[in-house]
């Protein structure tokens, strides 16, 4: 609960010198790779006046796409947190045959071209697909609905939570759990009150990564979503549509709106994360 910012100090005595050169390099690198491209978005969208910008940003189709993008990304990240934690738990706590294999499979969504993922998921979940066939009698349609978008986003963001939680879970001392048991805590209480708070910073990090990855995802979603304006059209696709129609200013305006919202959300998540991981440290 200590939100005081320590006085900014540039010069710090350290065994390994080189603050100047590393900081300089980092800033240049960040500028070239992130700041300049991002500022181009704002520069481009600034070509049109504020009135027109507002008109584009507040148009029904843009608002609907933003709603779909953020809600599906959020939902996918939440699902990834829950099942990522479960998977990390199984991989860290138990030994079983084929564990290394499963551990290796986890990173696969990163390696697979997203279009491939999109096509295979669409085929599986379409009404004639293997899984879609089973869900159709229940009245659940996955492909070409927001549910399909969530499925694709869960797939591509799934390794993040597992990989951020795994090392933290590994470092938790078993003695702490034993201490809780000796004090009479049930297994659920031990998990909920002792283990979960320790995992919280890692879970938030995993959530933030999965969430931001989902927001920017395009390749797999275009196949499974059906891209119906107002219904299943995500913002990145809308931007692309605008660009294809040579409406560069409009496209970048939407991109700017998305960037601002994403930045604010990620900043909030980071502050929360920072708070969660620093509150117990020596101040």
């Amino acid at each position: 609960m200590n939100l005081l910012i320590k006085p900014f100090k540039i010069k710090q005595k350290s065994v390994i010198p080189g603050f100047g050169i590393t900081m300089g390099f980092s800033l240049t690198y960040l500028t070239l790779l992130v700041l300049i491209p991002v500022s181009m978005v704002f520069l481009n969208s600034a070509k049109i006046g504020p009135a027109e910008f507002w008109e584009i940003a507040s148009s029904e189709r843009v608002l609907a796409s933003l709603k779909i993008s953020f809600s599906t990304s959020f939902l996918a990240a939440v699902i990834n947190v829950i099942f990522g934690l479960l998977l990390a738990w199984v991989l860290e706590r138990y030994t079983f045959w084929g564990k290394k294999l499963i551990d290796g499979l986890i990173d696969l969504p990163f390696a697979l071209p997203t279009a491939v993922a999109g096509i295979s998921l669409t085929t599986l979940y379409s009404q004639n697909g293997w899984i879609g066939k089973l869900l159709a009698p229940l009245g659940i349609k996955v492909s070409y609905t927001p549910i399909g978008i969530v499925v694709a986003l869960v797939f591509i963001g799934f390794p993040f939570v597992v990989r951020t939680v795994q090392p933290v879970l590994e470092s938790i001392d078993l003695e702490v759990e034993e201490a809780a048991a000796c004090l009479g805590a049930t297994r659920f209480q031990t998990f909920y009150r002792v283990i979960l708070p320790e995992l919280l910073p890692a879970l938030i990090t995993g959530f933030a990564l999965a969430f931001s990855r989902a927001l920017g995802e395009y390749g797999s979603v275009v196949f499974i979503s059906g891209n119906m304006p107002m219904k299943t059209e995500i913002t990145p696709l809308l931007i692309r549509t605008k660009l294809e129609q040579y409406d560069y200013a409009g496209g970048t305006a939407v991109a700017a709106v998305m960037l601002i919202i994403s930045f604010i959300l990620l900043l909030l998540i980071n502050i929360f994360q920072w708070w969660a991981s620093n509150r117990h440290k020596v101040s």
Binding site: E178, A179, A180, C182, R279, H280
Partner: peptide, 27 residues
Amino acid sequence: KVGFVFQHYALFKHMTVFENIAFGLRV
């Protein structure tokens, strides 16, 4: 209903001293 004290304390890091001691009563 045994009290167990570990060599490396096994305190709950994310809890204050008060919360650590109260844990057994609160659960």
